[in-house]
């Protein structure tokens, strides 16, 4: 069972306290109507599937409840870092 560092609680906690929430840094457009069908499709459905570093969102569901971002290696399953939502991509 992985330990995940919650950047809000500033603690490493077992993964059962957390929920995965998909790829990170995909902002909802401010004006969705300005998106073409193709752009909207990319926003809705198209996600990266890297071998290695992956930017993803997690939620400390059974802790502080905050969503945050993480960089996890999809091969080793190791977390490189976690950081608060809104902070620049690491």
């Amino acid at each position: 069972m992985i330990l995940i560092h919650c950047p809000y609680c500033d603690e490493k906690r077992p993964e059962i306290e957390f929920a995965y929430a998909g790829q990170a840094h995909i902002a909802r457009p401010v004006d969705p109507d300005s998106y073409s069908d193709e752009e909207w499709e990319r926003f809705l459905f198209i996600r990266a599937n890297p071998r290695g570093r992956h930017h993803e969102r997690w939620r400390h569901s059974h802790g502080c409840g905050r969503f945050f971002n993480a960089v996890r290696d999809t091969v080793t399953d190791k977390f490189e870092t976690t950081y608060k939502a809104g902070e620049p991509r690491k």
């Binding site: 969102r57 569901s61 905050r66 969503f67």
Partner: peptide
């Protein structure tokens, strides 16, 4: 609740 928290925290903080 999870979905609403998601939008509130990350899209419309």
């Amino acid at each position: 609740l999870n979905m609403m928290e998601d939008y509130l925290q990350t899209e419309w903080p």
